[in-house]
Design a protein around this nucleic acid. Structure first.
Lengths: 177, 177
DNA sequence: ACCTGAACACCGTTCAAGT
DNA sequence: ACCTGAACACCGTTCAAGT
């Protein structure tokens, strides 16, 4: 099987899902693909760019979008989108870190993040404020996922209600009161 | 000069402030202290615990507290505390990551975080909701700092108004409307 | 064009042995 | 009690050389 950008990224996603970011090294990735480490650098510039593509692969899926028409208000659509994101990222070890790398490079456009902004504008926020509101909500989603994953990792039995949803509701109501 | 826990942590804080987390390795730390790497492990259990103590040193300072009596409402005090935190963490490279390690281990109690919760209770939130509100605000502070620091690192000239304060105000008003 | 082999400059952690 | 020396099992990235 020929080594392509796609197979590299796909395999990286697999390692991330099964073992977490600590195990997603270039060397481990090469081993999984039966190839020398150096070969990877022909298909991907460096690890940072690889992680950005991994994030894109995780987030740019139709499963992580909402049809605005399905909800009676933009606020409802925003809540649902944020919840979808939260639930999708929770089972993927260290996903917040990976997504932060991607948004930091802002090289790849992450679809759910764009939709979040669009919905905030649809709710009546000016373009600039929609960007800031997107930040607030994304910070809360990623922060809550990271917090929850750390609890799991340390075998603290977390309360099922981790407060994500309560905080989300308060944030959205503050944004488009 | 004798090697103590305090000198180890202090030196670690110094490296973090001057060069960032990437340069804060046990080996670099040992070199700075003119000592072999192994010696560090007599004074600190491992790197994770070291980072937790670094976080505590950064946050447990009187400069990062507010006197509730100075503000006419708990909401005002909360805003000021969050702003102080944001401004204090901004110049310290990778500070959000360090603090996430500390809160993840929840071994060390971080004073400003506790005060944030107390102020939310003073504002009328039930104990459980105060914890969730604390999460929302802390997520926003750390997320915004991380976002801003990434912009600096990539030489993108950031807009002075990064939306932190606007988002913070909306969040607080959503929490204690 | 794509990959190997091998190197460079690093990591965190452990532990016998010294003082 | 505290530290050295040295090892173990890793990292990301580069690059001449092969095919």
């Amino acid at each position: 099987m020929a080594l392509t950008q796609l197979t590299v990224v796909d395999t990286a996603v697999g390692i991330l899902q099964q073992f977490g970011l600590a195990d997603l090294s270039m060397r481990r990735l090469a081993k999984e693909l039966d190839v020398q480490v150096g070969a990877l650098y022909w298909h991907v510039k460096n690890k940072q760019e690889l992680l950005a593509q991994v994030a894109a692969q995780l987030l740019n899926t139709p499963a992580l979008s909402v049809a605005a028409a399905d909800y009676e208000s933009p606020a409802e659509a925003i809540l649902q989108l944020a919840r979808k994101l939260y639930l999708a990222l929770l089972p993927i070890q260290d996903s917040p870190e990976v997504i932060e790398v991607a948004t930091a490079m802002q090289a790849t456009e992450l679809q759910p993040v764009l939709q979040l902004r669009a919905l905030l504008e649809a709710a009546g926020l000016a373009a600039e404020n929609a960007r800031h509101g997107q930040q607030l909500i994304l910070n809360h989603v990623l922060g809550s996922v990271a917090y929850r994953q750390n609890l799991v990792q340390l075998d603290v039995d977390a309360p099922l209600a981790d407060g994500f949803d309560w905080g989300l509701q308060r944030a959205v109501s503050g944004l488009i009161g």
